[in-house]
Amino acid sequence: MKLQRGLAVGLLLLAVPVAVVRPLAAQANRGAASGIRDASGHPFRTPAGSPLEPVHRLALLSATRDSLRDGIALADVGDRLGFWIRRDPDGDVEYAGAIHGGVFSRFDLGGPDQALIEVHYRIGALLRARFGEVAARAELYHLSSHLGDEFLLDTGARPISTSREGLELLLQGSPVSGLTVYGGPGVLLRATPDFEPLSLRAGAAWESAPGARARFHASVDYFGWAELDWEPAIAAELGAGLGRGTRVGLLLGFGPSRAEQFLRQSERLIGLSVSHVR
């Protein structure tokens, strides 16, 4: 029942912008709308710079926690499948359904066998929409995490099994060409162990003009969670495009760990990242 109530609330919240934006839809600029569509032409562009989003990513990083510094590798595999889209005749309102999922892995580069430290999984059902120059996404997701067997044997660490389902609503806009901003709240519907339910995510991403000989990008993502007393988890990236959807850049991060098993540990990350998103 909690899951059903949560989905109903999310769909209701998603419908709110219709009343606000619909009267302005006739004035919507198709160029502005292109900034909030993905490469497939569906509404709501994936915030590829957010560590919460399932994308393909390989990163070699230095991770600092207190006085400890480790070399780690992130190997993420994730994608999405859009299975339905509906547009009104004048193209000012559109709805689309999709699913996405990913595996987020962390490896120890300092050990002799580069053992798996932690892996977590995220799968979500998405309802995406665009109302004129504003896009929205409601995601009903499941997330679970596990420690690597070799890491447990080497360190004697106790596994902390985390699993939760939640609902997140994000709004997105493109106030100027090349710039996309997004943000919105999240709420947990079930969690093991019990976690504080409320969270907030926001961010911005910039890309140089498509016609430029070299394409550059920059992004910053914020995630705050009541469970962690709203300590900000910040991820930033600066780099260049290698081809359609593929990019390389300098990755920075600080705040609570992006590894689920270590979410109560603060860390600083810096290194190189290669990612791909459709």
Rank of each mutant, 00 (worst) to 15 (best):
62 S>A: 13
7 L>F: 04
39 A>T: 08
94 E>T: 05
10 G>V: 01
70 D>M: 12
58 L>I: 13
54 P>F: 02
68 L>W: 06
72 I>T: 07
68 L>K: 14
8 A>P: 00
49 G>P: 00
46 T>C: 08
43 P>H: 02
76 D>C: 10
24 L>Y: 11
22 R>F: 13
26 A>E: 05
41 G>D: 09
70 D>R: 15
20 V>M: 13
39 A>E: 10
11 L>C: 08
56 H>V: 10
24 L>V: 00
7 L>K: 02
57 R>V: 00
19 A>W: 12
52 L>E: 09
79 D>E: 10
72 I>S: 08
68 L>G: 08
16 V>D: 01
81 L>P: 01
31 G>T: 12
76 D>S: 07
97 G>D: 04
91 G>S: 06
92 D>S: 11
19 A>I: 09
41 G>E: 04
88 D>I: 04
14 L>G: 13
32 A>L: 13
54 P>M: 01
34 S>K: 10
95 Y>P: 09
11 L>V: 12
5 R>I: 03
18 V>K: 08
22 R>A: 15
72 I>R: 12
45 R>Q: 12
36 I>K: 08
92 D>P: 00
92 D>Q: 11
24 L>H: 11
5 R>S: 11
5 R>E: 07
12 L>N: 03
32 A>T: 14
12 L>M: 09
57 R>G: 03
67 S>W: 09
15 A>F: 11
23 P>D: 06
10 G>F: 03
97 G>H: 07
40 S>R: 13
12 L>F: 10
27 Q>C: 06
61 L>K: 05
45 R>D: 09
81 L>Q: 07
43 P>T: 01
61 L>A: 04
56 H>L: 09
95 Y>C: 03
19 A>E: 03
65 R>T: 14
91 G>Q: 01
64 T>G: 15
68 L>H: 14
19 A>L: 14
42 H>E: 06
87 R>H: 01
7 L>Y: 02
74 L>S: 06
93 V>W: 00
70 D>W: 12
15 A>G: 13
54 P>H: 04
29 N>E: 07
45 R>P: 03
39 A>H: 09
25 A>H: 01
88 D>W: 00
59 A>G: 09
77 V>I: 15
72 I>F: 06
93 V>I: 14
17 P>W: 02
69 R>E: 13
16 V>E: 00
40 S>W: 01
47 P>I: 03
82 G>M: 01
84 W>F: 14
63 A>L: 13
37 R>N: 13
73 A>K: 09
82 G>Q: 07
61 L>N: 03
37 R>E: 13
98 A>D: 08
62 S>C: 05
24 L>K: 07
58 L>D: 02
17 P>S: 03
